[in-house]
Simulated scan of single mutants.
Amino acid sequence: MLTARKILVLNGPNLNLLGKRQPEIYGHETLGDVEAECRSIAAELGFSVDFRQSNAEHELISWLHEARETVAGIVINPAGYSHTSVAIMDALAACPCPIIEVHISNIHRREAFRHHSYVSHVATGVICGCGTQGYTLALRRLSVLLEKVTP
């Protein structure tokens, strides 16, 4: 059953180490900080947030399958799976809602293998290089997109 104002915020591998792993690239905010900010902005926009993280590809895919019929939009930071997972791309392609892909760093200024994202092929929009603010930008963009389809 669709929960009209619910947004899934999905985080891929190693994001549980945010704030500890390579802070010179990813910053000092923790995933808990990102979640708190997402919940605050979502409440301001009239959304609820289902915020999740997994290092397991199959778990991310199962959550996307569940989301197909329960959320109005998806924000996803697929992390390293951006560049490798056709399966996550396919799961997202089966979702009828808008999808915003987020990357904390600018993947286009990094190693060549990071320049390609399978997820970008099915995302409605992509935000990269804005630090953790990319998540709140994504929520604001979803709000605009969803207002266009809500009577």
Rank of each mutant, 00 (worst) to 15 (best):
V9P: 02
V9K: 03
V9W: 03
L10K: 06
N11T: 09
G12K: 10
G12D: 12
G12P: 08
G12C: 10
P13T: 14
L15Y: 06
L15Q: 05
L15W: 03
L15C: 07
N16S: 14
N16C: 11
N16Y: 12
N16M: 12
N16Q: 11
N16I: 09
L18N: 00
L18Q: 00
L18S: 00
L18M: 15
L18G: 00
G19L: 00
G19A: 01
G19V: 01
K20P: 00
K20Y: 09
R21P: 07
R21D: 08
R21T: 08
R21M: 07
R21I: 08
R21Y: 07
Q22S: 13
Q22W: 08
Q22N: 10
P23E: 10
P23I: 09
E24C: 01
I25C: 01
I25W: 02
G27V: 08
G27R: 05
E29W: 04
T30N: 06
T30G: 04
T30E: 04
L31S: 04
L31D: 03
L31P: 00
G32T: 06
G32K: 05
G32F: 03
D33E: 11
D33Y: 11
V34Q: 02
V34K: 02
V34N: 01
V34W: 01
E35L: 05
E35Q: 15
E35T: 04
E35D: 07
A36F: 02
A36E: 11
A36S: 11
E37R: 15
E37L: 08
C38E: 07
C38D: 08
R39T: 03
R39E: 10
R39V: 05
S40P: 00
A42E: 00
A42R: 00
A43G: 12
A43Q: 12
A43T: 13
E44Y: 02
E44G: 08
E44H: 12
E44K: 15
L45M: 11
L45D: 07
G46S: 06
G46V: 04
F47G: 02
F47V: 02
S48T: 15
V49Y: 02
V49E: 02
D50W: 13
F51D: 07
R52K: 13
R52Q: 15
R52H: 11
R52P: 00
R52N: 08
R52V: 03
Q53F: 02
S54V: 13
S54Y: 09
N55L: 10
N55E: 06
N55Q: 10
A56R: 15
A56D: 15
E57G: 05
H58Y: 14
H58W: 13
E59L: 13
E59D: 15
L60R: 01
L60M: 10
